Simulated scan of single mutants.
Amino acid sequence: MNRDLSPAAEIGTPVSTGRPEVRLATPADAEGIVRLRSAYILPEPLSEEWIKRCTGELAPRLTPAGDARAFVIDAPDGSLASCALGLIHPVLPAPAYPKGLAARVHAVVTHPDLRRRGHARATVTALLDHLHAEHVTLFELHASVEAAPLYQELGFAGSPALMRMTRLENRDTRSERAGGPSWAPPEQYAETVMKMTGFACISFTNEEGHPLQLHSVYSSAHPWQLVGGTMEPGERPWQTAVRECQEETGITPTGPPRLLATVFGPPGAEWPYSTMGSIFDGGRLTAAQIHSITLDPDEHNEARVLPLAEWEALMPSRDFARLCLVMEARRTGGAAYFDGQDWETE
């Protein structure tokens, strides 16, 4: 490791960030970090064999001489509640990174039962500050849709040029030379297919059939939104829609689920993956139900109902076009398809 990578804090020493208490990870935290990443970030959890292998790889890298830095928050039961893991790598020097050091924020994850307590912000902030003290000045990460506003606040910006490829070293080409197909193991093939972020929403109206929208506190590009959000690992679309509705409004949809629309968006400047979403019919709410909506102040600050035509002046044209298709599907009993949810200019 480059001699400029002298640690700014002793490993295992708590960092004073108020509540919650954040500390620099030790090699003993490697398994906990790997298990959090496996359970709540990866599309499919790792097997115990791969958890052991990843733990053995990460542990020595979490030493002062290693190239990994992580900050963690302990859960009450002694496990890890949250972590932010960064991997340092050398680059050619430039005025913006004179020491030739960059870091990739490899994993930021909080146990679902302990979210919405500021853990992610606390661990990522501690990690960035620590890496900067080690002369790292170039930072990279892949952000989920729900986490993007946090990273933007911390100074990250999107790049439309992001591309990715997995090229394995020991590819078996014998069947290709013989003129037949080459079959890769499922985990290898999975690395080659398109990556996509899923989301699910609920469409409500009042008793007059006017659509309900929530006003965002974090997105100026999409100020008015349907009730819903990003799918979590292991969830099905309807489960996501119900969970997000409970979190954002306090209402629990009873179903059965009726699909109103499927929404697709290609990758772009703000998000490196395609997005695919399901919008379900939530039915009509009474005035009393609308009045009783309890908003999450970290996400929305107003629930409003207006006739469809009056929404056009309050949202981007693509958002309004999507809302029109959803309302038409409600009216006809059919289902709509919308593929204009682009990220390129948002």
Score class of each variant (00 low, 15 high):
residue 191 E to K: 11
residue 219 S to N: 09
residue 174 R to I: 02
residue 231 M to T: 06
residue 194 M to R: 15
residue 169 E to W: 13
residue 196 M to Q: 00
residue 193 V to T: 08
residue 172 D to H: 04
residue 177 R to T: 10
residue 216 S to Q: 09
residue 177 R to I: 13
residue 171 R to A: 02
residue 197 T to M: 03
residue 235 E to F: 14
residue 241 A to C: 06
residue 165 M to Q: 06
residue 183 W to Y: 05
residue 189 Y to F: 04
residue 167 R to Q: 09
residue 166 T to K: 07
residue 204 F to D: 02
residue 168 L to H: 06
residue 231 M to S: 05
residue 204 F to Q: 04
residue 199 F to I: 03
residue 239 Q to S: 15
residue 223 P to D: 09
residue 185 P to F: 10
residue 221 A to Y: 11
residue 210 H to G: 00
residue 244 E to K: 11
residue 184 A to E: 15
residue 221 A to T: 10
residue 245 C to S: 13
residue 192 T to K: 10
residue 201 C to P: 04
residue 205 T to F: 07
residue 232 E to L: 14
residue 216 S to E: 01
residue 178 A to S: 13
residue 218 Y to D: 05
residue 192 T to G: 03
residue 161 A to H: 15
residue 210 H to W: 14
residue 203 S to W: 08
residue 199 F to D: 07
residue 243 R to K: 04
residue 221 A to E: 14
residue 197 T to L: 03
residue 162 L to F: 15
residue 198 G to D: 02
residue 241 A to R: 05
residue 173 T to K: 09
residue 229 G to R: 02
residue 221 A to F: 06
residue 169 E to R: 13
residue 164 R to N: 10
residue 164 R to M: 13
residue 167 R to V: 15
residue 171 R to Q: 07
residue 225 Q to A: 02
residue 233 P to N: 13
residue 230 T to W: 11
residue 195 K to I: 06
residue 227 V to D: 02
residue 228 G to P: 00
residue 230 T to Y: 02
residue 178 A to P: 03
residue 168 L to G: 07
residue 201 C to F: 11
residue 218 Y to L: 13
